[in-house]
């Protein structure tokens, strides 16, 4: 895979906007100026649209060749409102707004409409691998010559979804969260040492420690890197087994665990975290080893180009 440079990052979580690692003022009225549009937007739509718009604020609409978004759960609050309305009104007289806003591609579509971007626009809803799938597509678009590919991930938590996840035992090892993360990707950059994604791979189905070791070695080999030269970050429950894997991988002092809040597209926030961490590493590459609910796994190799 050719390196994919990340030329801009933007995150909105806990009512905080962080751009390229620096906290900025979050004013929805300024970012989404039209009050008629803003009033129809649920929390996640507002977060996602604002985050995406801030990420491309310095780019002309015609210079953006693709918008690729990812969401595991979609716009949950609007979906719940729509379903509740179906029940409450005996499947009749349903309000159009929650239905329109509940679709998975609402955020990618709204960003395109607001900025007049007529390019490729796709949303991935692949459960715990939604963001990874979007990243793979974005990397392929960049490899095909597309410039300024806007890649984003959005998921929200609602009281009822948190309750359902708790009852299903999905919160035993994790703390639930939500957030919006966007990135601008390019094949080239004029900035020295710009962060870049060098490789990505995904697996579904429970992976044993041996599977993970074999997989990590495989990725290191195909990128001509020794595993001992990597910073390997084991995310969430994998951080609990990092020492076992460390023994099997051989000598490497650069292994750490990181626990993030969990939601289907949480890998996007972990990527944002790793990009900030890269700023303190001059030569080393980082390998993110992630898992979601012991079902979806990913390896993301990044470094400074």
């Amino acid at each position: 895979m050719k390196p994919v440079y990340i030329t801009r990052t933007c995150q909105i979580a806990n009512d905080q906007l962080v751009m390229d690692g620096v906290e900025a003022v979050l004013d929805y009225k300024e970012i989404i100026a039209d009050p008629a549009l803003r009033r129809r937007m649920s929390r996640i739509v507002k977060m996602g649209v604002a985050c995406g718009l801030k990420c491309i604020e310095e780019l002309a609409p015609e210079s953006i060749d693709a918008i690729i978004t990812a969401t595991g759960f979609g716009c949950l609050a609007d979906t719940e409102k729509f379903i509740e309305s179906i029940v409450a009104n005996s499947e009749r007289l349903l309000n159009p707004t929650p239905f329109i806003q509940s679709t998975f591609n609402t955020i990618g579509g709204q960003i395109a409409l607001l900025r007049g971007i007529h390019s490729y626009n796709v949303t991935y809803a692949h459960r715990g691998l939604s963001f990874e799938s979007a990243l793979i597509d974005a990397a392929m678009q960049v490899a095909e010559g597309k410039k300024n590919v806007l890649l984003g991930a959005i998921d929200e938590i609602t009281a009822s979804s948190a309750d359902i996840q708790r009852r299903l035992g999905m919160t035993r090892e994790y703390e639930l969260g939500e957030g919006a993360n966007f990135f601008v990707l390019n094949a080239t950059t004029s900035v020295k040492d710009q962060p870049a994604v060098f490789d990505i791979d995904t697996r579904s189905g429970k992976q044993t420690e041996d599977n993970l070791v074999e997989w990590i070695v495989e990725m290191a080999d195909r990128n001509n890197i020794k595993t001992s030269d990597l910073w390997i970050i084991f995310i969430n429950s994998l951080s609990d087994i990092k020492n076992n894997i460390k023994e099997k991988l051989g000598p490497n002092n650069n292994i750490m665990g990181y626990k993030s809040l969990i939601y289907p597209t949480f890998t996007a926030s972990v990527l944002d975290y790793a990009i900030n961490m890269l700023m303190g590493l001059t030569k080393m590459k980082i390998l993110l080893v992630t898992e979601y609910q012991h079902i979806n796994y990913s390896l993301i190799l990044l470094g400074r180009g």
Binding site: A36, R40, L93, L94, N95
Partner: peptide, 15 residues
């Protein structure tokens, strides 16, 4: 208001 609001007002009248 716009056309989507018109649909919402129709629902207010009916419900």
């Amino acid at each position: 208001l716009d056309s989507i609001d018109a649909l919402e007002i129709i629902l207010i009248l009916e419900r």
